[in-house]
């Protein structure tokens, strides 16, 4: 019974999977463990899970794993991701939210060995009464590793986004580099955002910073485009897409087109 509930995927050591693998989650399953063997490279896609689910990622030495979480159909659920990084491993996680009824997305990352790196990005384009709450805890349990977190929220209607992100560097984890960035743009009267970036640092030879902005689009850029004949709505949409450009461009080409199109479609509902 419990066996059926947990799915397991093992990527063999030194295997390179060129094409993104879409995870098909069997009905009734509630968790999935992905083990990336030493030296392996793979991309895993998780689509519209829409039920409470736990993902465990265990990266072995020098493994490289990219996880793309797609939430493009309405749904309410709690997603939990836990991740463990060994020496020289690299975890990239990109989450794209264009349709959420009420989603809670949490990450618990343990960087266990030095030389590893984490890159976590999350893009949310929400409107109506959509709600997204994200909770991140990134623990640098060993020194000499780096982590980078980026959160972008484009909110219209009465959408609500929460982000609580903690970087924890225990004593002894020297030469850590940990960064967190969040950018939120509210496009309507009733949209709201709550951001709590947190740093808990007990080691001194580290570089840690976080930055958070909640603001608006560049008015000069908007006018420049309008002066060239582009409508204000179109210009706004283009600037909003530009906000997400960097993360979208980092997706594998096939997914870039599809997800890019979904994001564009959603943006039309915002502006």
């Amino acid at each position: 019974m419990t066996a059926a509930k947990q799915m397991e995927i093992k990527i063999p050591a030194h295997r390179t999977e060129k094409a993104p693998m879409v995870l098909v989650l069997p009905a009734g399953s509630t968790s999935c463990k992905v083990t990336a063997g030493a030296g392996s490279r793979a991309i895993v896609c998780i689509r519209n899970v829409n039920r409470d689910f736990s993902f465990r990622f265990d990266l072995k030495k020098n493994a490289s794993l990219t996880c793309i979480l797609e939430q493009t159909r309405p749904g309410s659920a709690i997603y939990r991701h836990t991740c463990r990084l060994a020496t020289g491993s690299e975890m990239r996680s990109i989450a794209i939210f264009t349709q959420c009824t009420d989603i809670r997305n949490s990450y618990h990352i343990d960087i266990q060995e030095e030389g590893s790196s984490l890159s976590l990005s999350s893009l949310a384009v929400l409107t109506g009464r959509e709600k997204l709450a994200q909770n991140i805890l990134c623990r640098h349990n060993a020194g000499g590793a780096s982590s980078m977190q980026t959160f972008k929220h484009l909110l219209g209607g009465a959408a609500q986004a929460d982000m609580v992100g903690r970087i924890l560097v225990p004593a002894g984890s020297q030469k850590t580099e940990a960064y967190q960035q969040s950018r939120s743009i509210l496009l309507s009267e009733q949209a709201s955002v709550h951001v709590e970036p947190q740093l808990e640092i007990y080691a001194d030879d580290v570089k840690c910073s976080h930055g958070s902005t909640v603001g608006q689009l560049d008015k000069d850029a908007l006018f420049y485009m309008q002066q060239r004949g582009i409508s204000p709505e179109e210009a706004t949409r283009m600037l909003l897409e530009a906000e997400l450009r960097h993360e979208l461009d980092s997706l594998p080409p096939a997914l870039r087109r599809v997800l890019g199109a979904k994001v564009s479609r959603k943006l039309k509902h915002l502006v």
Binding site: V193, H194, E196, P197, E200, I201, K207, S209, G211, S212
Partner: peptide, 27 residues
Amino acid sequence: DKCGAHTFPVMRVKNRTAVVEHEATTS
């Protein structure tokens, strides 16, 4: 290396014309 420095800022924004910027560094 025996002390700790922590930052717990909270930004709660419910108006779209606001501009709120926060930066923190630990070194």
